[in-house]
Amino acid sequence: MTGRSFARRVAIAVALCIAGAAAPAMAGEAVREAFITSQLADSVGVVDLATMKQVAEIAVSGKPAGIAMSSQRDFAYVTTPDGKELVAIDTAARKVAWRINVGEGPLGIAVNPRSGVVYVANWYGDEIVSVDPKTQQVTHRVKVGRAPSGLAVTEDGATILSADRESDAISVIDAASFTRTGEIKVGEHPFGVAIEPGGKRAFAANVVSNDVSVIDLGTRKVTATVKVGSRPYGVAFANGNAFVTNQASRSLSVFRLSDLQPVTTIPVGDYPEGIQATPDGSAVYVACWGDNIVQRVDTATLKAGVKAEVSDGPRAFGTFLH
């Protein structure tokens, strides 16, 4: 590397840090750990990303599945579909801080990046619940389609999306009034939904039609459908690409965000589910339910790398990097 290109990289890095500081606190900071919901073990494991070892395990009853980090990453919020609870874990103390009943079959979970409010999708209750973490109370409920699973919130905190699995649709919810303002029909059985950086489009992984619906959030219309592997589950974005976990194909489908053309398919462990990109986009981490591992995938070489052994049935459905 020449001195000049090194200087440019430093300048870019500094610029990125400044940009990061303008975003919600800590959001741009490097991640050190992964908090992994191990559903069959009834626990949340803490994986050290430098050594790729599970260094702690927090008992969480009720079959923990969904997870979302608070903006400051001081709390990991976990849903327990069988326990009907939202469980808040203090990430520094690695302890359960509080837990409340939220309703029937809580699964998907997301945090409003502006207000810090926590949203939970109740799979059996067909509703989205809003929880104020300061008071630890349910503040609002809104009915959506059938079996809501994945949730996503726009960067401005104004809009919530829920993937309503049995309705083959994405619900649009206005965060301020907590009312459902629209429904967008997508492929068959959308499960995970994610909003690309910049916030213009949302991507829904359709478990039964084996594709991803691309939604323009301005017009609220599906503008494209991208074929992926078998039983797609979650979507993450890094390095100009979308990465989709294909549960039954044991792989990630990778396609370009610019033209939605396929890039490659990356073999990973059995039943890949939860997926999240690092803030710098250099890697995505994938929880593989079947093999009880968390795997790092390099987004430049597009190769799966080191694995961390975790407890039984890791799902990590949501944001889990700390």
């Binding site: 559903q39 069959l40 079959k63 599945a65 069988d82 079959g105 799979w123 039964v208 079947g290």
Partner: peptide
């Protein structure tokens, strides 16, 4: 028919 193709959130092994 929708029920036949649906399931709860907890997969077993």
């Amino acid at each position: 028919p929708m029920l036949a193709n649906a399931h709860g959130p907890s997969r077993k092994k």
